[in-house]
């Protein structure tokens, strides 16, 4: 009985693992992909925040630029960030970010 439940749990875990895997790609691949991916890029000037969301531009290591929109609260440290990571899907010419990753500004070496 216990064994059966363990096997069932493992099966569920594996399938959610595969569906939750978010590859870390560059912008060219992100633009071609139709699944959730993770990108990282240099934050360019001209960030706009209005009722349609937080909109900004990122540039990856290959020099490719991509517009990003995020509908949540601006994460702390975003304003001073050099590089910003985002998890989301590229759709209709804009990267729809579900999550933003901003590293602590380099002057803070804290936890």
């Amino acid at each position: 009985m216990l064994g059966f439940l363990i096997v069932l749990s493992l099966a569920v875990a594996s399938s959610s693992f595969l569906s939750g895997l978010t590859p870390y790609v560059d912008f060219a691949q992100a633009k071609k992909s139709s699944r959730t991916v993770q990108v990282l890029g240099i934050l360019l000037p001209q960030t706009v925040e209005d009722e349609t969301g937080l909109r900004f531009f990122l540039r990856d290591d290959h020099g490719e630029v991509m517009p990003v929109v995020y509908h949540g609260a601006r994460p702390f440290g975003f304003d001073g960030a050099e590089r910003v990571g985002a998890v989301g899907i590229y759709k209709d010419g804009v990267f729809q970010a579900q999550r933003l990753l901003v590293k602590c500004p380099s002057k803070y070496r804290g936890e």
Binding site: F17, G20, Y24
Partner: peptide, 27 residues
């Protein structure tokens, strides 16, 4: 550990938060 494992395998990736929620659901 997934980011580390996948990076070591040459295809770096992270996991969506949904994995943790879905994966631990039956448990």
């Amino acid at each position: 550990a997934t980011p580390l494992i996948t990076a070591a395998l040459g295809r770096p990736a992270s996991l969506e938060a949904s994995f943790y929620n879905k994966g631990t659901f039956p448990l």
